[in-house]
Every structure is written in structure tokens, then in C-alpha cells.
Design a protein around this nucleic acid. Structure first.
Lengths: 343, 343
DNA sequence: CTGAAAGCGCTTACAG
DNA sequence: CTGAAAGCGCTTACAG
């Protein structure tokens, strides 16, 4: 036997506008107007005394407007749909926290769900959100060549991208090309000449640009990074492990590894440990995102800090601009290199 | 200039039941009945031909019932509210993934938000969910002595708990007492005699029971764990670091540390590293939850596997039972010790 | 079997 | 300034 309170049948029916109107002795119109107005404006709709009585009664009975009724009437739902690759991923979870926070501040609620970067799943999930009448979408899982986004744009569905960008859709990103460049330069300064990259997912702008930045920095120093030194794969520990195993399958080994994600870097650490390779003595290792773990690892991880929470907050603001009909200006935030011991 | 598709004004108005009814030449009642019925049942409401025409038209125009209208009418929202301490936490993010998955399978959508384990914030967030007319709540942030839950139970709000339990409210948990016991026994087998615990949040059943299990195992072996060997604090790397610093402030050092969370264990690793203490030679270290990182760390982490995703899925099923008026049976799942190198 | 009608709880243009 | 009324898009008890 567990206690879950009184049975559903005994729950009091929610208070409605009509109940308040009857009690106070005014029309529902007046109650609606007063309750939706600020202090000053309310007096345009009723006497100070009536305003006070309406508010008192509403407060006493804990009146909560039925949002479904309001949505039906106004066809505004105050709902935002959010698609992320995976909430288990610290990076996207943090971006979502920023989204949820800013959404709440602006009177919106959010639906989030995982797409697992699967195109079919993305389409299905997006349709479910649209069915729920979200006013707009925020995508954290945009792809390089994104048919879904093209379709939504054609249909006039308002949306913005966070974290990853795609085509010329409105987006809030961190400057990943710069982030990659900072990593490349740092490694060069540390005397490294033979770079390998755990690049991340090949269809994600984050992966593509971080990789390009680092490779270009080496090229600028006259050092070519051959294709065999770049391994694509998921942004997590298992993905990092697999990619690292590929890169270290044959000698000579690289003298530096750049993982475009801290968790992938940790996966690589596991592989280096297994082979008895020391970090950074044998191989430098740099991650990306500056997760809270980075500083605590037995070998503290050099990484790139990116403003994940802020990206989420900006995403909401950008979406609100789009909903307001403004011509949206994409936002690109700055990354910071955090040097520790690993590279 | 960014491309966000055609302006909102040009978006086609959504298809309604009435539009379909007019096109097909039947009443909205019939359309509603047919569209809500299965193949067999539909024939009770219209001829095979009419059924086919209604469905074709609905499919062709991508009809999506307006959920706000349906909710208003039926006073069922198909919405579940979920409160977690923090989505950044891998453990709760994974539990939520299970919730979202099972909710979707059962025709529900979920709202999630962080409570940060703050009582005031929890109350506010819960009221917002209730205002949105969720049918029930799932709490991942229950407390030892939980006034909010008592209040909700008294008000007849349907809810269940996941991960943490409290009083006799319906819950889905992992057997934390057993998990702690497994850790204690393992450490004893490894010859450890002086246990310290990074216990976690003092008001969380998970923290309390895992700690109790380990301490009791030592007691059963005739070894007392004094109060000074137990440090409470947040379930994350920073919390683990702080608690570990407290435990290692004075000598003699313990010969084993149990962190009730893998991330806290990683924070402790940082402290041990800083002091030149070797794991497990000087001090054994065991974590909890078997996060994907555990196996990849330079010193692979011994930990306890808990079925987080499954806990979330069970939580939804339990809530559905409660909504159905059934007397809910709390679920307790089994943990598994995963022995690696750290302890 | 099928349709007309009521009504869920709001908001807001329209009258007075 | 305030109220009566319409209507958002559904579902479903009630008539025929």
C-alpha cells in the first residue's frame, strides 16, 4: 500500500472565470480583462474596489487560467518545441537548461525530446511537436545538409538552431572555427607536429568547423594533416574510444590528438592508457567544451570553453524575434581556450 | 539575412474537422468518430466508402487534431510533468530519457524542468505544471521530509517518484541499501578497514541508503565508521572535490573512499591526484551509477550499475496505474557491482 | 447508423 | 466603462 493522496474523484474542480464572475457579481468579460491587466490598466476595466475583489477571490481560490481554453481561443500556445540529439550529452543538456530558463522567463513552456541524430526520428518528433501546436521549434541537432529544415522553412514553421548551424537558417552557435584554430595553435606552440583529430559526427557543423580550424592552423604552419589522421564518430566516450583505436591502429603515432568533445577525449584517454602511452609526454590531448570533469581528471584536460547555457538562452531570444516577425540575426559566441596539463 | 521560410502570415491555416466534414459531405460528428476509431470500429460509424474518403482527405491535408480543443472538451491533456534536480546530471538525464520514451509510447507528452533541489523552486515549477493541466507528475527530486509531496497528496494530485523515495509515496527506485552493501563488502574483501564516504545530498534517499548500506557492511565486520569519515554534498565533480578535501584534511587518511556518485568520485580523484595519493594502492575508490566514463578513466572506476533508463520507464507505467485508479505498487530494481581497478 | 446541438473555458469585437 | 454574445475545435450524450 502506498499513499498517493485522495482518489482523483475527490479532487476539487478547477476554478473558472465564470465561478469568479458569479461570486463577485460581474461578467466573465470583466474578470478576464481585470485578471489579464496590470495594476494601472486594470482600472480601465473596473472600479478599484471591483478589481480588488476579483483579485482577492482569484488568489483565495487559486485560480489558474486553463491554458488549453486560452490557446484554442487565441491560437497562441506559449509552447516551444526543442529537439536535441541526446539529453544524456552534457553539452546539449546544458544548452537545454538555458533554453528552459529563458523560455520560462518569457512565459513559454518547452517540450524537449531526443532525436538521436536520426533523420526519421527527427521528422516524427517534429510533427508531434507541431501537432501539439508549438509556436516555434529550436533544433540542437541540425545537419550539414538538412532536408527537414528546408521543408519546415518552406512550410513557414518558425524555428532557430542552437549549437550547430546549417545553410543560412537563423542560429546561435559558438565560433567553432575559431575554437579549432585555438587548439591547433596551442598544439603547435607546444611543439607538436603530427596532429590527429577525433572529429565528431561528420554531418555536424560543430565537428566540421572545429576540425577545419585545427587542421588549418597546422596548414598555416606548413604542416599537412592527412586524411588518415582524421576519424569521425559520435561525441561521447564510446565514440572517442573507437575513433582513437582507429587512429592508433598503426605506427607512427601522432604526437597530438584533438577530440572535438571532452567525453570523446576521455574515451581516447582510455585507449592511450591501455597502450601505455603517456599524456602529454607521448601524445598531447585536447578536448572541447570544458565540462566540469575536465579539471578533475587524473591528467587535467586542456579544452575549449564554450558558453553552452548562454547559447540556449540566446536561442530562445532569437526564436522570439522570429515569432515577432523580425528579420533574425544569427549569433556567434566566442570560445576560450583553457590550458591544463594534457596538451 | 537568414532564411526562416515564408512569413508566419502565409502559413496555411490548420485543417479542422469541419473542413473535412464539408469536403466529404458528412457531419463533423461522423468525421470525429471515424478518425478516432480503429479499422473495425470505424465501420460502425460510416460506410466503408465514407470511412475511406474521410481518411484519405485527412491524410492528404495532413489533418492533426487540435490537442487544446480536445483537452478542453475532455479535460484530459495527455501531459505529464517531470521535475528533476538537474538535467545536466547524467543520471537524471538518463532517467528522463526513459520517462520521455515510455510517455511517448503511451500517447503522453512530457514537460521537464530543473528544480535544483530548491524547495521554493520546486513548488513554483510544480504549480506551473499543474497550471498547464498535466495529468500527473513524476518527481526525481524527492526529499527525505517532503512537505511539497505531502501537500500534493492531500490535494489529490496524482504523482510518482523515481530515483529517490520518500515516506510511503509510490516510487520506482534502485535498491540503494543493497548497492551500498555491495560496495562495503567489496572494500572489505579488498582488505580495506578504514572507510570514508562522499555521501551525497543529506536529504536524498539515494545518498542516505547507499551510505547506510556501506557503513552497515563495515559494522557487520566489526568496523565502525565514525561520523567524521562521512561528508555530505552535491552529486557532482565539484561536490565530490569539496567533500574529499574535507575527508582528507587530517591524517590518518582512510584506506577507502566510497562516492555515492561517479562524478563525485571523479572530483575525489582530482583531490587524490593533487595530494599524490595513488588509487587504489593508497586509497581504494568506488563510485556509483556506472556512467560511460567510468571504464575509460586512466584508473578505471569500480562502481555500481543502476538501471536508470528503466527506472524512468517504470515511473511512467506506475503513474499510468495511478491515473487509472489502481493501488500503486512501488518498484525497487536491483543494482550490480562492477569491479574495475580503482577499488 | 447519423446528425444537430451543447458545451469545455477562455478572449475580444461589438453594442449599449 | 461593462456586458452579452460569438466562436476557437473538438467530443459525446441525445434525438431521430
Amino acid at each position: 500500500m502506498t499513499d498517493t493522496g485522495t482518489p482523483a474523484e475527490s479532487r476539487p474542480a478547477p476554478v473558472t472565470l465564470r465561478m469568479i464572475a458569479e461570486q463577485v457579481g460581474v461578467s466573465v468579460s470583466t474578470v478576464s480583462r481585470v485578471l489579464n491587466a496590470g495594476d494601472a490598466e486594470a482600472l480601465r476595466w473596473a472600479s478599484a474596489q471591483t478589481v480588488a475583489r476579483i483579485r482577492e477571490y482569484a488568489a483565495a481560490r487559486a485560480y489558474r487560467p486553463n491554458p488549453h481554453a486560452a490557446s484554442l481561443r487565441t491560437s497562441r500556445s506559449s509552447l516551444i518545441g526543442v529537439l536535441v540529439p541526446r539529453l544524456q550529452d552534457f553539452v546539449l543538456a546544458t544548452v537545454y537548461e538555458g533554453i528552459d530558463e529563458a523560455a520560462t522567463e518569457n512565459g513559454f513552456s518547452t517540450f524537449v525530446t531526443n532525436s538521436l541524430d536520426d533523420p526519421a526520428s527527427r521528422a516524427v518528433r517534429t510533427e508531434m511537436m507541431l501537432q501539439r501546436r508549438v509556436e516555434g521549434m529550436i533544433f540542437g541537432d541540425a545537419r550539414d545538409d538538412d532536408a527537414l529544415l528546408a521543408d519546415l522553412a518552406a512550410r513557414g514553421v518558425p524555428f532557430v538552431l542552437v549549437s550547430r548551424r546549417s545553410a543560412d537558417h537563423a542560429s546561435v552557435t559558438c565560433d567553432d572555427l575559431l575554437g579549432g584554430t585555438l587548439v591547433g595553435r596551442r598544439l603547435l606552440e607546444a611543439g607538436r607536429r603530427d596532429l590527429a583529430v577525433l572529429a565528431g559526427l561528420p554531418f555536424a557543423s560543430t565537428a566540421i568547423e572545429r576540425t577545419r580550424g585545427a587542421v588549418r592552423a597546422f596548414a598555416d604552419a606548413g604542416l599537412r594533416v592527412p586524411k588518415e589522421r582524421i576519424a569521425w564518430g559520435p561525441f561521447d566516450a564510446a565514440g572517442g574510444r573507437e575513433a582513437a583505436e582507429k587512429l592508433l591502429a598503426t605506427e607512427p603515432y601522432p604526437d597530438a590528438i584533438f577530440a572535438t568533445n571532452d567525453f570523446a577525449a576521455i574515451g581516447a584517454m582510455g585507449v592511450l592508457r591501455d597502450r601505455g602511452l603517456r599524456v602529454p609526454d607521448d601524445i598531447s590531448l585536447i578536448g572541447y567544451n570544458d565540462t566540469p570533469l575536465a579539471a578533475e581528471l587524473p591528467i587535467p584536460l586542456t579544452t575549449v570553453h564554450s558558453p553552452m547555457h548562454e547559447m540556449g538562452r540566446h536561442g530562445v531570444n532569437l526564436l522570439i524575434d522570429v515569432l515577432g516577425g523580425a528579420d533574425p540575426e544569427s549569433v556567434r559566441l566566442d570560445p576560450t581556450l583553457i590550458v591544463r596539463e594534457s596538451g
